[in-house]
C-alpha cells in the first residue's frame, strides 16, 4: 500500500517537476491579449476581415496592425469585447445583412436560352452573360448557397436565392461569389427593400420580368424621404426608412418587399423579426 502510494506519487512528482521546469525553460512568448481576442471571435474563419482566419485576425488586432472592428459576423458585441481586451473605446459597426435584390424566379422572369450546363452561376454567366434575360437578375444556380458558411441561403423551387436574415452574419462571401452583383449588403434594422437589380428602362423590364422595378417614381412620390430613383431603378434610403412600408401597396410591380411580413414567394423562411442584437454575437 505504502509502496503504491509512494511510487505513483513519486512518478507524478517527477513528471510535474519536469513539466514545470520545461514550462519555464521552453516558454514561448504569446501575447495573452491575442488568445483572449481569439476567444471572443466567432471562430468560423470566414475571411470577412480580409485575413485567412480568426487566429490571423486576432494576431493582427493584438499587434495593432489591423482595425479591431472588421469582424462582421461577430457584430457589435464582439467589437465591444475586443475593445475591452485592448482597453480602447469601441468603434461600433452598424450590423449588416445580405439580401438578394431580385424576385424574378423562373415563373416571373424569362430566360433568353435554355441552360443545361454546370449548375454554377459563374459558369453560366460566361455563356452569353447568363441565361436570364435580365442583365442583373438572380441566375438561381446556387453558387451563393454553396459559398455561405452559415447555411443562411436557400434556393426556392423556382430557382431564386433567398437569404435568411436571422442566420446571415454579413460576412459577404456570397457577395464575392455572385457573378451578377445581385446580392447587396443592407443595414439589419431595415426590413423594407427594393428587390430589383436592373437598370433597364421600364418597357424593357416588363418584357422579361413581372416583378422588376420599372423606375416609375411612385414609391418616391408616396414616401419622398425613403426612396431614391437612379437610372430607372429605385433604392431605399436607409437613413430615413421609418415610413418606407407605405409605398409597398402603391408599387405597380410589387418589387418592394417588407421582410417582416414575409420573404419572397417560394421561400420557407418565416417572416423576419427585427432583432435588437446581432444574431451571431
Amino acid at each position: 500500500m505504502l509502496a503504491a502510494v509512494l511510487s505513483i506519487g513519486g512518478i507524478g512528482l517527477v513528471a510535474a517537476a519536469t513539466l514545470g521546469l520545461a514550462a519555464k525553460k521552453f516558454a514561448v512568448e504569446v501575447d495573452p491579449r491575442e488568445l483572449a481576442i481569439l476567444e471572443v471571435l466567432p471562430g468560423v474563419n470566414c475571411g470577412a476581415c480580409g485575413l485567412p482566419g480568426c487566429s490571423g485576425y486576432a494576431k493582427g488586432v493584438a499587434e495593432g496592425t489591423i482595425a479591431p472592428n472588421l469582424c462582421t459576423p461577430g457584430g457589435s458585441e464582439t467589437v465591444e469585447a475586443i475593445a475591452d481586451i485592448l482597453g480602447i473605446e469601441a468603434i461600433t459597426i452598424e450590423p449588416q445583412v445580405a439580401i438578394v435584390a431580385c424576385q424574378g424566379d423562373n415563373r416571373k422572369a424569362t430566360n433568353k436560352y435554355r441552360y443545361l450546363g454546370l449548375q454554377d452561376c459563374n459558369a453560366a454567366q460566361k455563356l452569353a452573360d447568363g441565361p436570364k434575360t435580365c442583365p442583373g437578375g438572380c441566375l438561381g444556380l446556387g453558387s451563393c448557397e454553396r459559398a455561405c458558411p452559415f447555411g443562411a441561403i436557400e434556393m426556392t423551387a423556382e430557382n431564386l436565392a433567398v437569404i435568411n436574415r436571422e442566420k446571415c452574419t454579413g460576412c459577404e462571401k456570397c457577395v464575392a461569389v455572385c457573378p451578377r452583383q445581385v446580392i447587396k449588403m443592407v443595414p439589419l434594422k431595415a426590413t423594407v427593400h427594393v428587390l430589383c437589380n436592373s437598370h433597364d428602362k421600364g418597357a424593357l423590364i416588363r418584357k422579361y420580368c413581372q416583378i422588376g422595378c420599372i423606375g416609375c417614381h411612385i414609391c418616391k412620390k408616396t414616401v419622398p424621404e425613403a426612396y431614391v430613383v437612379e437610372n430607372f431603378l429605385a433604392f431605399a434610403d436607409y437613413e430615413h426608412i421609418e415610413n418606407a412600408a407605405a409605398a409597398i401597396e402603391k408599387c405597380p410591380t410589387k418589387c418592394i418587399r417588407d421582410f417582416s411580413t414575409g420573404y419572397p414567394e417560394g421561400s420557407s423562411f418565416p417572416p423576419a423579426t427585427v432583432p435588437v442584437k446581432h444574431p451571431a454575437a
Binding site: 443545361l116 450546363g117 454546370l118 454554377d120 459563374n122 459558369a123 460566361k126
Partner: peptide
Amino acid sequence: PLVQSIRHAKG
C-alpha cells in the same frame, strides 16, 4: 457537362 466544368476550372 465535362468541358464546361473544365473550362470553369481553367477560368
